[in-house]
Every structure is written in C-alpha cells, then in structure tokens.
Design a protein around this nucleic acid. Sequence first.
DNA 1: GGCATAGTCAAATGGTTATTTAACTACATG
DNA 2: CATGTAGTTAAATAACCATTTGACTATGCC
Lengths: 89, 89
Amino acid sequence: MTRRAAPEQQAAIFAALGDPVRVRFVRALVDGGEQSGTSLAGRLGISLALLCHHSKILVGVDLVQKRKAAQTTYYRVNQAALKQVLRDF
Amino acid sequence: MTRRAAPEQQAAIFAALGDPVRVRFVRALVDGGEQSGTSLAGRLGISLALLCHHSKILVGVDLVQKRKAAQTTYYRVNQAALKQVLRDF
DNA sequence: GGCATAGTCAAATGGTTATTTAACTACATG
DNA sequence: CATGTAGTTAAATAACCATTTGACTATGCC
C-alpha cells in the first residue's frame, strides 16, 4: 500500500529524535500536552534560543507542531506522525 | 511496568537510525534476511571499511546482531529491539 | 510612547561523525 | 607456506551539529 519513504527522509526523522534534549522535548509534550516555548525551556533547563533551535528540527520533520498566539508559541506533539515512525521497517 | 529508558539511551538508538546508509542497512536485512558483510557492502554500494563503521553503530545499540563464521561475519536484524524502539513515547 | 515578555536569527565555537585510504589480522585452501 | 578472501583498525579530512552569546523583531500593557 503505502510505499517506503526515501531513506534520507526516514533518516531525518530518526535523526530528529537522535538527541537527548529532543527526546526530553517530545516526552515533555507527551506528558504535559501543549506547552509554550518559555515553559518548555524552563522544564528542560535550556535557554529559549536553544529551545528554538531544537524545535525547528522537530517541527521540520513534522513530529511536533506549533501554533502562535500573540507573542507566545505553543508546541504540541503530532501523535499520528510519532506512531508512524517505525511503520517503514 | 517497564520504565522509560534514559533520554541519552533512547536518543542513541534513534541516532543509530538517523543516517541514510544505516536505514538502507537495516532495510536490506529486513528484506533479505541474514547477510554477510561483503554481500551487504555490495548491495549498499559502500566499502567494507565503511560498512564496518556503520555496523558497529547498529550493533552497539543492539538493533542489529552479528555472528562470525570463519572469516565471514553475518548480520541480522534484532526484530524485537526494532519493534520496541517507539514503546517509550 | 516606553517597557517587559516571548521568540527568532546569526555568528562563533567546540565537539562529533561520515568517509576515504592504507595497513593490518584471521581464516581457508591450493 | 603462499595466496586470496573477509574483516577490522587507525589516521586524516571534511562536513555537520549543539550550544552560547548578543542583537533583533513582535506583541501586550502601563
């Protein structure tokens, strides 16, 4: 049915999860639901600039989605994408 | 029941799959079953030295297992480990 | 308008990692 | 024992990536 993704594409998704900070990033969203950037940065013990960097990688492969309300950016996990990560093997 | 793995540990497993060559490595094993290093290197179009490098990373996180018979090393996928990769989220 | 909050961007740095090349070990067999 | 096959190792290089810092944009509110 669904064809396998290109190796580069699939590797990019795995690489996005291949960093301890980003694993904790996703876990924090799974556990705590949608959260703001500042809240997440506090929870993860990292600067807002670093959170922004990691969020771009996770959002870039669509494992995390973002929504902006006024100055605040809210992040949430893309559960469908997360569950499908291993489907290719 | 089973506690979540440490973020560093889980990230290492994802990072092992976060490279296009290693995605093709694992796919080749899933599709073709157990194969020798030389056979795999030919299939992936890489040198034996490079295959050795990537295999160490995959074996290091136990996604791939190896078995040595005389001069030849055979690789196979650890299906249980592969299926469990996403259990933590 | 002016100040505080929330986020993004860009440059700089250091550390890690993929790839190549060449040298080396291990085994099998003629 | 010499040769060929299979694999590993180490050094070197280049590319990539995480982290920090400081400057910059955007929004809300007094």
